[in-house]
Design a protein around this nucleic acid. Structure first.
Length: 559
RNA sequence: UGCCCGAUAGUAUAAUGGUAGUACAACUGAUUUUGGUUCAGUUAGUCUAGGUUCGAACCCUGGUCGGGCAACCA
């Protein structure tokens, strides 16, 4: 296989085979079918990239269909967020559709099934129905209502629809096989009574179809060619096919792939909702959440997420992806696009004793060293009083410490080489100031000093520094698979958010553009928070830079 | 103990009866005015037992392990 050829995933293989055989005239129509009862997360992104990607690749289209058959959990707020997230990811749907658009048709399908003697109204309670279904190892038994005649079933179903009965009094069930080894074929429920207000159809219905009598039928109505869903629907497939067969409608086909799991996070909507409701996080878009909106606020780009979804592949085996791969994808993206700026998060003062008091000069630094022209440059004010990072100085540095310490030299990024001559302690013995001399002939771009130094550090001129708030995020959970714990909330990382109320940044950072990524040199990638204001700028750390020095410290601790 | 799905380096994913490859991670080294980037390289894999075959990750059989299935949820 050459580099140009990319191997196909199993669904692509199926589609190519179908196209080759002229199935549906080579037409490909997929759908993305979210239930509007929560926000989209990175797992949905995998499905979105798959479904829309398949259509793009094979010259087809993708419908967006809200699977809104359960009025009690679904809300318009979720519809809006879902549409927004899909667009942000960069995809366009062919049609915006709702399963609730098909309620009339679905009702008609049910009548048709009753008329064929393939469905019946059951007055049993849900407990009775569950008991009569048997167990995986024992066949089910019929309830007393299974053999009602067609006319009576028709009349009762009509009465269910007209509101004659309270919730739970009756259900419509398919008449299939109570002894089937597949539990889903033991006379599954088709319609249930719910006197509830629906976010789109209002109060016009009090019977609502179940998933199994809505999803496949909606696929068929839309003439979806490839209905791609996750593994847990495999046992539903015989029912999916049975219903389409009995109703004699367009034969959509269902294919299942393994959903995405990411380590150190949770992916179920129920758990995410719990984190939101119980205020472990700020909301669905908290930057620690694996939601699309959370990742967006954190500073992830649509391209990085799409790329991640393509790299993880599509298969049928269960998987847990290392969140490190997601981080790799955003670093790869931001390294090429983020503008470089300097910010000091944990400051200590550095004074240049041979640089005149009150003197200042404007230095320049390219915005982006990864591209040819640097995407322009910005000015950086310099003086004899600077903030540097506290961790860039050590009183007793080891051999491989390429930063400041007594007698050591470093380059100040975009500025001069300095040598540490001295340092000052307070009465408690803490270092409060580092005193250096600088080499005037070592200025960046016009260095004639002939001196080479191993380290370069970032800095901010104290008289020119601006202050901003910086939020550092870490993984939300301390264990790889929180969902496997008896109490997943007990494994929440108490240090998942660290707020630095006063970080010093170079002045140009006040011009930061919302939505753009910035690299704080040597510290990581950051972006403006959605709640940032010009009075009080707030930056979120998207991800740190790779840090081989930190690894070195783990291998050979300094002290 | 019924039915269904699955099993390839640490994690994912290819190889579709003919040299087990790729990415991330890890580790070496080079380059570097970011301990970033980039470049070169190293380590590391077919769950198991049989069978078919000149030849099996791939086909067949048994086993083992993991996951799913009995919501008026989707």
């Amino acid at each position: 296989m050459t580099n140009d050829e990319k191997s196909l995933n199993f669904i692509e293989e199926i589609i190519e085979e179908d196209i080759k055989n002229g199935k549906h005239g080579g037409r490909v129509l997929t759908r993305f079918p979210p239930e509007p009862n929560g926000y989209l997360h990175i797992g949905h992104a995998k499905s979105i990239v798959l479904n829309f990607g398949l259509a793009q690749k094979y010259n087809g289209k993708t419908n967006l269909r809200f699977d809104d058959t359960n009025p009690v959990t679904e809300e318009t707020e979720y519809v809006e967020s879902i549409k927004n997230d899909i667009k942000w990811l960069g995809f366009e749907w062919a049609e915006e559709l709702y399963t609730s658009d098909y309620f009339d048709t679905l009702y008609g399908y049910a009548v048709k099934l009753i008329e064929k003697g393939m469905a019946y109204v059951d007055d049993s309670t849900s407990e009775e129905i569950a008991a009569a279904k048997g167990t995986p190892t024992e066949p089910g038994k019929p309830t007393p209502y299974r053999d009602r005649d067609i006319a009576e079933n028709l009349r009762l179903f009509e009465e269910m629809r007209s509101g004659k009965y309270p919730d739970g009094a009756k259900v419509l069930r398919a008449k299939i096989d109570l002894a089937s080894p597949n539990m889903h074929m033991r006379d599954p429920l088709l319609f249930r009574i719910k006197h509830a207000h629906h976010h789109r159809t209002g109060d016009s219905w009090c019977v609502y179809p179940m998933y199994d009598f809505a999803h496949g039928q909606s696929d068929s109505i839309e003439q979806i060619t490839h209905s791609v869903c996750t593994l847990e629907f495999i046992p539903h497939r015989p029912l999916y096919d049975w219903l389409i067969d009995q109703l004699e409608i367009f034969p959509s086909k269902q294919y299942e792939f393994a959903r995405l799991n990411l380590n150190y996070t949770v992916m179920s909507k129920r758990k995410l909702l719990q984190l939101v409701n119980e205020q472990y996080v700020e909301g669905w878009d908290d930057p620690r959440m694996p939601t699309i909106s959370g990742l967006r606020r954190r500073g992830y780009t649509p391209g990085s997420i799409r790329n991640f979804c393509e790299r993880i592949g599509v298969a049928k085996r269960e998987n847990i992806i290392d969140v490190g791969l997601l981080e790799f994808c955003i670093r790869e993206d931001l390294n090429k696009t983020a503008w470089r700026r300097m910010a000091v998060l944990d400051p200590i003062k550095l004074t240049i004793i041979n640089y005149p008091d009150g003197k200042e000069e404007m230095l320049t630094g390219e915005n982006n060293p990864e591209v040819e022209d640097g995407e322009g440059e910005r000015e950086i004010p310099f003086s004899n009083a600077l903030w540097i990072e506290r961790e860039d100085f050590m009183e007793n540095p080891p051999k491989k410490f390429f930063r400041l310490g007594p007698g050591l030299m470093v380059r100040l990024k975009h500025a001069y080489i300095v040598r540490c001559e001295d340092f000052v302690r307070d009465t408690d013995g803490h270092v409060t100031e580092i005193r250096c001399t600088y080499l005037p002939e070592s200025k960046s771009g016009e260095d004639t000093s002939g001196i080479k130094v191993k380290g370069t550090i970032h800095w901010v001129s104290i008289p020119h520094a601006k202050t901003v708030e910086v939020r550092l995020y870490d993984r939300l959970f301390n264990v790889e698979n929180p969902a496997a714990e008896s109490d997943f909330k007990a494994t929440i990382n108490p240090e998942s958010l660290q707020i630095i109320e006063k970080a010093y940044v170079e002045p140009d950072l006040l011009n930061a553009i919302s939505g753009k990524g910035y690299q704080f040199i040597r510290k990581g990638y950051f972006t403006l928070d959605t709640k940032s204001t010009s009075d009080r700028p707030v930056f979120n750390r998207t991800v740190t830079l790779r840090d081989t020095w930190a690894k070195e410290l783990v291998k050979t601790p300094l002290l």
